[in-house]
Design a protein around this nucleic acid. Structure first.
Length: 708
DNA sequence: CTTGTGGCA
């Protein structure tokens, strides 16, 4: 503990912080910055005038670091040293050092914009550049001007962008604290491999045969590649001559692995046995595997990116940045000197890899973040000019404004509305928070809460189609089917059934539903209910009786509420086939994702209009999680689209550009088209719906009986 | 006719 490098710099750090409102600390791995900085300033009296806050990008980190600091100070966790993460606040009035996720700090800033409880805010791991960290960086820049005398801000970062952060904070001082990593020898390939699975395999076996003991960590891009390599590696290791080298264990490691499989990497291997851990970038920062001496770095990573013009996400394999490459290499030097095999030439590292990873804020939809910033009521700030360390493109900001306007969160001049203010208080995507408010008007809040919670679950809850299993798929054993109306309704029905059987875990397992995910959903739903009750200052019906629901099997009100929430995520079916054209974004042809529960009518056709939760481009552009809606609900949204003026939303000039004019006239055509369709098909549509509803009811009651 | 890098309120 005493040997932590950072303690040798204590006086220097304290002195610098005393003289400067913002200081950047470059602390390499093992410097002890996460546990020591807070204690240093606690010792020097900074906790007398307020709490010292340390933010972490991840919940496990906030908890584990707080635990360690409490131990080192020999106090009970939750008293002088505490932490706060979603669903769990372990702090008390005695708390002087508080570890929290940056998401929690953002929420706190909503109710107390000056964050007056804190005398010092330490943004740890800022180089990871999470969306939340980036917003906090912008807020901190304002806050130190508001509280120059009684707030100190520390930002920890990586070597490669310390100066950039310093520039952002008016050339604040940068202190570098060495780490405690052992040297890592970097070995490059002569050329880029044609298949990096094969290349990883060769390198791994080479290490196994020729290098002394020590575990091998291999970075791959995703689950598929990991499974392939794990299989090949196991085969190869088995085929090696008995006694020619030590034993080997091959372990996969990625986020969709069940927790009990993930923790296997924490049990040390038996004597004279080498472990190969084949991992995604989860092992870059989130999980630290002890005993790794060799790292194999493919040089690639999977990244999700957002296209603001089309509203479409894609998951692409891209080259890592130098920061990531260095981070990966560092994983080999935690216990003793190690080696890192980069499966690309040094020239690629030098010339092609970006210095730092493109921050998340430039790769995501910003509707939620923009709403958040608007709700802070920073009167002097035009959102397009908000001072970000790396500003998002104006396309992304305009897209966010447009989406927010379509769901009534901001008015035509871009100011936040009362509806928007309430929405911002809910920890949800704007589409879902808007749905909740609308559902409350229609008397189906309880159902909407469930859907919002289900869609908040980070990973997919439903069973995926396993590839190696037989092709004919069995109908899902017990799962409801959304009455054919789509995936939102199915998610609702699944949760409601689980609720009825008292959250029985066995039922989840029997139906391949993720237990962890569903428990998370239950927590989220509870939290959302509490927040919305508090906002309404009254008794909202968040736990509607089952008998009530039974009478409305077509979920009409609920679907109407979804339509309001997803006003910017509409699609219209093509006349002759089941493809859809998106409305609102640059119009594109998209398909209903094949996993969807949306049902076709007797002619094999999907509904004329749907809302979708997400556009994702994989093998083709798909809508994931769709819900059938009626054309009459769409008309008012079309009208709004037609009158939309993005320039005004962003507080710019009122003049309509040529481009805007063209856009709105084509929207007008869209609208007319929709009305024609309405006339032609409304009767048929009504008949279909009645039919579907009846059929669904029949099936529902049949399903129930069969179970009993 | 088929997706899931990693996080967070």
């Amino acid at each position: 503990m005493v040997s932590l490098p950072i303690l040798q710099f204590e006086e220097k750090i304290v002195q610098t912080v005393q003289d400067n409102p913002v200081v950047v600390i470059i602390g390499e791995t093992g410097s002890g910055k996460s546990t020591q900085l807070s204690q240093i300033f606690h010792r020097h009296g900074y906790s007398k005038s307020g709490v010292i806050a340390v933010t972490q990008p991840r919940r496990v980190a906030a908890v584990s670091v707080a635990r360690r600091v409490a131990q080192e100070l020999n106090v009970n966790l939750g008293e002088e040293v505490g932490y706060a993460i979603r669903f769990e606040d372990r702090t008390s009035p005695k708390t002087k050092i508080k570890y929290l996720t940056d998401g929690v700090l953002l929420r706190e800033s909503l109710s107390n914009p000056e964050l007056s409880d804190y005398s010092m805010i330490i943004l740890d791991e800022a180089h990871e550049r999470s969306l939340n960290t980036d917003i906090l960086l912008g807020l901190m820049k304002r806050l130190v001007k508001l509280r120059p005398s009684n707030l100190r801000v520390l930002i920890t970062s990586a070597t490669l962008d310390g100066n950039k952060v310093s520039d952002f904070f008016m050339n604040c001082p940068v202190l570098t604290v060495p780490g405690k990593l052992y040297p890592v020898e970097i070995l490059y390939s002569n050329e880029r491999p044609t298949s990096y699975i094969e290349s990883s395999l060769r390198t791994a076996i080479d290490i196994h045969v020729h290098e002394p003991e020590g575990d091998v960590l291999i970075f791959m891009t995703g689950q598929d590649d990991i499974e392939k390599l794990v299989d090949k590696l196991r085969d190869k290791v088995q085929s090696l001559e008995e006694g020619s080298c030590m034993d080997a264990i091959v372990l996969p490691l990625h986020g969709s692995l069940p927790p009990e499989m993930q923790v296997r990497v924490f049990t040390p291997p038996p004597q004279n046995c080498r472990r190969f851990i084949v991992a995604t970038n989860i092992a870059e920062t989130s999980l630290t595997v002890d005993g790794v001496v060799y790292v194999i770095d493919s040089g690639y990573v999977k990244q999700r990116q957002y296209n603001p013009t089309s509203g479409m996400y894609s998951l692409d394999v891209v080259q890592i940045s130098k920061v990531q490459a260095d981070q990966r290499a560092g994983r080999a030097g935690r216990t003793r000197p190690g080696k890192c095999y980069r499966l690309y030439p040094s020239k690629v590292y030098q010339d092609e890899l970006l210095d730092v990873t493109i921050p998340e804020i430039q790769r995501s939809s910003l509707a939620g973040s923009v709403l958040y910033l608007k709700s802070l009521d920073l009167s002097d700030i035009d959102i397009l000019k908000f001072d970000f360390l790396d500003p998002p493109s104006s396309d992304t900001l305009e897209d966010a404004l447009k989406q927010l306007h379509l769901i009534d969160a901001i008015d035509t001049s871009g100011s936040i509305t009362n509806v928007g203010k309430i929405m911002a208080e809910l920890p949800l995507e704007p589409a879902l928070s808007r749905t909740l408010l609308e559902a409350n008007e229609y008397g189906c809040l309880s159902q909407a809460l469930t859907i919002a919670a289900m869609l908040s679950a980070e990973t997919s809850l439903l069973p995926g189609r396993s590839k190696h299993s037989e092709k004919k798929r069995k109908p899902p054993p017990d799962l409801p089917d959304g009455s054919g109306l789509g995936d939102h309704i199915q998610l609702l029905q699944i949760y409601e059934y689980w609720h009825q059987i008292d959250y029985h875990i066995g039922w989840l397992k029997d139906n391949d539903l993720q237990v962890r995910g569903m428990l998370f959903v239950r927590d989220v739903r509870k939290q959302l209910s509490q927040i919305i009750q508090k906002i309404a200052k009254g008794n909202l019906d968040v736990q509607e009786a089952e008998s009530e629901r039974e009478r409305r099997r077509d979920y009409k009100n609920l679907r109407k509420a979804l339509c309001a929430g997803y006003a910017s995520q509409l699609a219209e079916r093509m006349t002759l086939h089941n493809g859809y054209r998106t409305i609102g974004f640059k119009s594109q042809l998209v398909q209903v994702h094949p996993s969807s529960m949306l049902r076709t009518d007797d002619d094999g056709m999907f509904p004329d209009f749907v809302v979708y939760h997400e556009l994702i481009s994989t093998s083709r552009p798909y809508m994931r999680n769709v819900c059938a809606i009626k054309v009459s609900w769409v008309i008012p949204i079309m009208k709004k689209l037609e009158n939309l003026n993005v320039n005004r939303l962003s507080g710019g000039s009122d003049q309509v550009t040529d481009g805007e004019q063209r856009k709105s006239s084509s929207l007008l055509q869209q609208k007319n088209l929709a009305i024609e369709q309405d006339d032609r098909e409304s009767k048929i549509q009504a008949a279909r719906e009645r039919f579907l509803a009846r059929k669904a009811e029949r099936e529902q009651s049949l399903g129930r009986k069969a179970k009993k």
